[in-house]
């Protein structure tokens, strides 16, 4: 069992996550876009388009325009998620000394790392709770939700809370052990999981998230870009040259008009009136 949880599960979960997301995205990208779905107004040049997509990715610009309150929670959640992931990477690798890289003293870096981790973790939990509250108490959104919508939020909330819980005295796993374990995974030489129940719970929940991610609506992190790219495509320019690559097989099948091209009457009328 320990071998399974410590060695098989992390590799399995990560492969499913990566493979699943790639499979779904490539599945979308393989399907043709038979007609330009440009959603105007769209910038003409490439830089404008890149700026537009980045402002959507980094700032959720559209949501800000539409619903400021929802935007606060959504943006805060995604930002804190991003921050927490980076915090994990640096904090574990440098054993909380990462801020020494920007000129802090080691003891300052330790405090700052603990403090920032706590703040972002709390913000993440708060924003998830706010989103959950909205899903339950906003009648429209409640009716739009299916069980998995709640499950997504609860799973993320559980991961966040187990993460924060590790701050509690007595539950704190040794960072050295965690780093040694992660290093073992990365070097394909896994060692047993650190002996901290709360860490194991946190770790198992993250594995579950990775396993579940590609099959769920959470895949919107990738699908979002696929949609946005369709919407900023340049509209066609006329005349369309004959050598341009057909957009799909629908374009290729030919159609012949059923009524004659010319009619004698109308030509005669023209002749008379000119």
């Amino acid at each position: 069992m320990e071998f399974f949880m410590g060695s098989v599960l992390p590799y399995g979960a990560f492969s499913v996550f990566l493979g699943g997301v790639l499979f779904r995205v490539s599945g979308w990208l393989r399907t043709p876009v038979p007609f330009q779905l440009t959603l105007f107004s769209v910038p003409r040049n490439r830089i404008g388009k890149i700026c537009l997509i980045f402002s959507e990715v980094l700032l959720c610009r559209t949501l800000f325009r539409q619903d400021k309150l929802l935007w606060v929670w959504v943006w805060l959640f995604h930002l804190s998620l991003f921050m927490v992931i980076f915090g994990h990477l640096f904090g574990i690798f440098y054993l909380r000394d990462q801020f020494c890289l920007v000129g802090f003293r080691p003891e300052q870096s330790q405090v700052l790392s603990v403090f920032l981790g706590g703040i972002w973790g709390t913000l993440m939990a708060l924003s998830l709770l706010a989103l959950l509250y909205r899903r339950i108490f906003n009648l429209e959104v409640r009716r739009l939700s299916s069980p998995d919508s709640y499950f997504d939020l609860l799973l993320l909330l559980a991961i966040t809370l187990t993460g924060i819980f590790m701050y509690a005295p007595g539950f704190h796993p040794e960072l050295h052990d965690v780093r040694a374990y992660m290093a073992g995974l990365l070097l394909f030489d896994p060692i047993p999981l650190p002996r901290s129940p709360i860490f194991v719970a946190h770790f198992l929940l993250v594995s579950l998230l990775l396993l579940y991610f590609p099959f769920s609506r959470l895949v919107h992190l990738a699908g979002f870009l696929v949609i946005r790219l369709m919407l900023v495509e340049a509209p066609p320019e006329y005349p369309i040259p004959g050598h341009k690559r057909p957009r799909s097989i629908f374009t290729i099948s030919k159609f012949q008009p059923e009524i004659p091209l010319f009619s004698k009457n109308s030509v005669k009328r023209e002749g008379r009136s000119v």
């Binding site: 779904r24 399907t31 043709p32 919508s149 609506r217 895949v219 919107h220 699908g223």
Partner: peptide
């Protein structure tokens, strides 16, 4: 036939 249908149906989070 078209990418838009699947990608638009599968990504809605019901916000």
């Amino acid at each position: 036939f078209t990418r838009s249908l699947s990608v638009m149906l599968e990504n809605c989070t019901g916000c």
